[in-house]
């Protein structure tokens, strides 16, 4: 990623390139306070996901039958050992939320990784082959785009059946058109540039042109889309979990945690509020970071 970024910026800046293009990206990014908050939150979530086993005080599925629906520690009746309270079957909320982070990030990484890599291949193929292949791929994407996002995900689940893995596939399919269109558009723009012609004359094959010459220069918008898509993935996965079509109990997934606690909405606010806050914060973090990246990478908005 680093090398591709630097190539891109050098291409834009021309001869008066500043010391390091990556440093410049960081300088522009840092100026955006929202982006920094997003980055910090994302860092925090990654940390929690990586070290969940050590940070979480309890196992996410261990049930403490003597402390069912214990409120958070600072509320009257709360127990010090369960900082954020317990759920309807006596599991520690904090631990479940921490392990939920791991799950949400994993969903994001797998579904976006899948979607992005397939999207790049399809987009580059469309851009370089043109003609019938191009039309075919783009028509297929039009079809996918005509279906409202969650509806398409639900349709995919209808075929594959409910479950966490299937939810990831569904989300990957929903996001696919965005990556294909973006890759194709930037690849077509780059394809006519002189440096591509130069490599072609130098005898580079189509595959080399696609992946080594052109792709690195199309990465900037793809990275932004990937970051913003990450937040949508987390949101959609939670929605599917909430509908009972994604992760199944007792998996500590935020959306399904919320769904399984619905009946306690009046008596135990924490079982409903806390997973929601976790989803909101995670989505917000990736959105803030994505917006910041876009502003820093988009030369049009640069002063």
């Amino acid at each position: 990623m680093n090398t591709s970024n630097s190539q891109l910026t050098v291409a834009e800046e021309g001869i008066s390139a500043p010391p390091s293009p990556l440093a410049e990206l960081w300088r522009d990014f840092r100026r955006n306070r929202g982006a920094l908050i997003g980055l910090t939150l994302v860092g925090l979530f990654i940390f929690m996901a990586l070290f969940a086993n050590w940070i979480a005080p309890y196992s996410p599925i261990e049930q403490y039958r003597d402390s069912i629906l214990a409120p958070p520690a600072w509320v009257e009746g709360g127990k010090a050992q369960f900082l954020l309270g317990t759920d309807p079957v006596g599991r520690d909320m904090l631990s479940r939320l921490i392990f939920g982070t791991r799950l949400s990030l994993l969903i994001g990484i797998i579904s976006i990784g899948l979607s992005m890599s397939i999207g790049i291949v399809l987009g580059l193929t469309a851009a370089f082959s043109g003609g019938k292949t191009d039309t075919g791929i783009m028509r297929l994407m039009d079809v996918l785009m005509a279906l409202p996002s969650l509806l398409l995900a639900v349709a995919v689940i209808a075929v594959l059946g409910p479950g966490l893995m299937n939810a990831m596939y569904a989300i990957a399919i929903v996001q696919l058109p965005a990556f294909v269109r973006l890759t194709r558009a930037s690849a077509i723009a780059e394809r006519s540039r002189d440096y591509v012609t130069a490599s072609r004359i130098a005898g580079a094959g189509v595959l080399r042109l696609m992946f080594i010459v052109v792709l690195p220069n199309c990465l900037a918008p793809l990275i932004v889309q990937g970051t913003l898509g990450f937040s949508t993935a987390i949101l959609d996965a939670a929605a599917l979990g909430f509908l009972g079509l994604g992760a199944q109990p007792p998996t500590p997934e935020w959306g399904s945690m919320l769904a399984s606690a619905l009946e306690f909405i009046q008596s135990a606010w924490w079982v409903v509020s806390l997973p929601g806050i976790a989803i909101l914060l995670a989505v917000l973090a990736f959105n803030l970071m994505g917006d910041g990246l876009r502003d820093a990478l988009d030369p049009k908005l640069k002063r």
């Binding site: 929605a239 919320l258 997973p275 929601g276 989803i279």
Partner: peptide, 8 residues
């Protein structure tokens, strides 16, 4: 924009 609407 970031709100999970089922939670909202």
């Amino acid at each position: 924009y970031s709100m999970p609407i089922f939670w909202w």
